[in-house]
C-alpha cells in the first residue's frame, strides 16, 4: 500500500470513528463501510480501527474473522454467493455451482485473477420459494439455472468497462 493510500485510509477511519463517537458499538458499521469500499479489512485498517476505538487490534481481528461478509484478504469487485441451503439444493443448486465454476475458471472460495469475481457458498438467502438463489454483492438473483449464469456474469463484466477487458486478457495470457 502506498503511503498516500495509507494516509487517506487513516483519515477515512478517523472520520468514521468520529461519526460513531469512538464507541465500540460503532465497530460493525465501520468495518462494513471499509469492507464495502476496499473489498477487505486490511491489517492496517484493523490497526487503525483499534486505535480509534481504544481496543487491541486482535479484538478487531476477532470480529472481522467471525463474520462471513467481512474478510482480511481482498475479495473480487463482485462477490458471488450461492445459497447452499436445502431448498436451493433441491431446486438445482449443484448444476448452477458447476456452471459458475466453469464460467469463471475458479473453484468456490477463490477469486478470479483479474480480481473481478469471488465465488463463495452462503447459507440461506431467504429465497427458498424461488431457488436456486444467489447474490452478486447486494443484488439477488432467483430461479437461476446454468443457462442464466453466463448472462449474469456478463452483466457485471460489462459494468467494469473496457479497462477490465484488458486486465482480463492480461490475466488470460499470464
Amino acid at each position: 500500500m502506498l503511503a498516500t493510500e495509507r494516509e487517506s485510509l487513516r483519515h477515512e477511519i478517523a472520520e468514521l470513528a468520529e461519526k460513531f463517537e469512538h464507541k465500540r458499538d460503532g465497530m460493525m458499521p465501520m468495518l462494513e463501510t471499509i469492507q464495502e469500499k476496499y473489498r477487505c479489512v486490511s491489517d492496517f485498517a484493523m490497526q487503525e480501527v483499534a486505535r480509534q476505538l481504544g481496543v487491541f487490534p486482535t479484538e478487531v481481528y476477532g470480529v472481522v474473522s467471525f463474520y462471513s461478509f467481512l474478510s482480511t484478504e481482498p475479495k473480487g469487485k463482485f462477490v458471488i454467493r450461492l445459497c447452499r441451503t436445502l431448498s436451493c439444493d433441491f431446486a438445482g443448486k449443484r448444476e448452477v455451482a458447476r456452471q459458475l465454476e466453469n464460467e469463471l475458471g475458479i473453484r468456490f472460495g477463490e477469486t478470479t485473477k483479474d480480481r473481478l469475481f469471488s465465488l463463495e457458498y452462503c447459507n440461506c438467502l431467504g429465497m427458498c420459494d424461488n431457488g436456486p438463489a444467489l447474490l452478486v454483492n447486494n443484488d439477488v438473483y432467483t430461479r437461476v439455472h446454468p443457462e442464466l449464469v453466463s448472462d449474469i456474469l456478463e452483466k457485471y463484466r460489462r459494468m467494469f468497462g473496457p479497462a477490465s477487458q484488458l486486465e482480463e486478457m492480461e490475466a488470460h495470457h499470464a
Binding site: K23, D25, M28, E32, S68, F69, C122
Partner: peptide, 20 residues
C-alpha cells in the same frame, strides 16, 4: 446491519454483534 452469521439470530449473540 449484520455481517453474515446465523448465530446472531440468537438474542444474546445479536446483542454482542450490535456492541461490536
Amino acid at each position: 446491519m449484520g455481517a453474515g452469521a446465523y448465530v446472531c439470530g440468537e438474542e444474546t449473540a445479536l446483542i454482542q454483534s450490535l456492541e461490536g
